[in-house]
Amino acid sequence: MALKPSLRDVVSQLQAEGVLAGDAQALADTALASRQDVSTGSPWFVRMLTGFGAWVASLFILGFISLMVAVAEELGAVILGLLLTGGALAVRRVGNNVFLTQLALSTGLAGQALFIGGVGTLADSVEAAAAATLGLELVLLFLYPDAIQRFLSSLSASLALMLLLRLTVSGVLVDVALLGLTVLAHLLFLHQGQLQARRQGEVVTPTAFGLVTALFFVLLLRTWFHGFYNELFREGAAELPAGVLTLGLAVVTLYSAWRVLEETGVETGGAAGVTAFATLALLSVLTFRTPGIIAAAGVLLLGFHRRSEVLLGMAVSFILTFGISYYYDLQLTLLAKSLALLGSGLVLLGLRVFVLRRFPAAEEVR
């Protein structure tokens, strides 16, 4: 999930700074050829089978442990969950091969589930389980040296925080917290290069992806399962109107667009900057009842800026998902909706022609 500049960009930058001399394409081809000559160790199918064997081995271990938990019940689950999680952390820090990595991951996830479930059952409280999840996952986020676990910890901690807030405080504060998570995700991606160079820099990318996933999950619940989403509120609580949440997400997206234009050397007050800002603002106004669209547009912007296929795929998938919701939410007849789709398609095609003619892309060096 690490996002790095392309090899050609790095070589071109080094040439511009006078560090390297020679043809950039030749240097890139040489470097790529040298990378292909380096042995990657075991073949991919051997690593896959090794990881599968680790998960099967962990299932046998957990089957034996479940017999112990059945005797000790809730308190035993809490203690055993902590022991399994701590053991997985120790194993992961000692070994780095595929078998130990996957064995530690699967055992650690089982330990976390035992601990959280034990705390919730022992306290007979969903709030206690959410608080236990938040505390445990924040610790593992910084201590567990694995990108997958850090992504899951970031996702779990974010969702646990949202659930805990929904059960204890005003619904307005819940939406404010969601905006805060969005701001944090955008800042992590915008300043990813600088943050990764610091201590604990390996935490940045998994955390950012976890926050984005949590954002889309919450917005998906709010959009498609609004009834169930409201049931999680404590009685009498209210939430922000969809238009206000859309406005907040639009402000975050516009800020990211401004930062991206600055980093790429485009004048924010020029024609290109004004066109980008006007397009995002218009999109947020037209879809003010579906905040997920402008949120996905912001992630799409970050995906293009960081050249991340994962972010782009997530953004496109959720734009289509929230777009379907927006279409069915329109209080119009089917004929009017069809005309709206036709008109919006023509507008987008016209906007594409305008952008290509007004801002021609620089010819790519091949």
Score class of each variant (00 low, 15 high):
residue 221 L to S: 12
residue 252 V to Q: 04
residue 50 T to W: 00
residue 95 G to L: 13
residue 242 A to F: 11
residue 265 G to A: 07
residue 128 A to N: 04
residue 24 A to L: 01
residue 78 V to Q: 06
residue 111 G to M: 15
residue 278 A to E: 08
residue 38 V to Y: 05
residue 278 A to S: 15
residue 176 V to K: 07
residue 300 L to V: 00
residue 365 V to E: 06
residue 214 A to G: 06
residue 80 L to N: 08
residue 117 G to P: 03
residue 43 P to M: 12
residue 233 F to C: 01
residue 286 L to Y: 07
residue 79 I to C: 06
residue 113 A to L: 13
residue 128 A to H: 00
residue 196 Q to C: 13
residue 353 V to H: 04
residue 34 S to Q: 11
residue 178 L to E: 14
residue 210 G to F: 01
residue 116 I to R: 01
residue 351 L to K: 05
residue 355 V to K: 02
residue 37 D to E: 14
residue 143 L to Y: 11
residue 31 A to Y: 14
residue 228 F to K: 09
residue 346 L to M: 10
residue 88 A to W: 09
residue 55 W to H: 09
residue 191 H to R: 14
residue 285 V to K: 05
residue 338 S to P: 02
residue 349 L to I: 06
residue 196 Q to V: 14
residue 133 T to F: 02
residue 132 A to V: 07
residue 335 L to N: 08
residue 25 Q to W: 03
residue 102 Q to N: 12
residue 225 F to Y: 12
residue 218 V to Q: 13
residue 191 H to S: 15
residue 55 W to V: 11
residue 20 L to D: 11
residue 240 L to C: 07
residue 24 A to E: 11
residue 347 V to A: 14
residue 68 M to G: 15
residue 286 L to I: 03
residue 42 S to A: 11
residue 132 A to E: 02
residue 224 W to N: 12
residue 247 L to S: 06
residue 218 V to A: 13
residue 361 A to G: 09
residue 136 L to K: 09
residue 5 P to N: 05
residue 237 A to S: 14
residue 152 L to M: 08
residue 22 G to L: 03
residue 351 L to C: 09
residue 66 S to T: 08
residue 217 F to Y: 08
residue 180 G to K: 07
residue 16 A to Q: 11
residue 291 P to C: 08
residue 251 V to P: 02
residue 338 S to R: 13
residue 336 A to N: 07
residue 163 L to C: 00
residue 162 M to Y: 10
residue 163 L to N: 09
residue 213 T to A: 15
residue 2 A to F: 12
residue 67 L to K: 12
residue 364 E to S: 06
residue 142 F to N: 04
residue 353 V to R: 14
residue 217 F to M: 10
residue 336 A to L: 09
residue 90 A to N: 01
residue 30 T to F: 07
residue 71 V to R: 09
residue 65 I to Q: 01
residue 157 A to C: 03
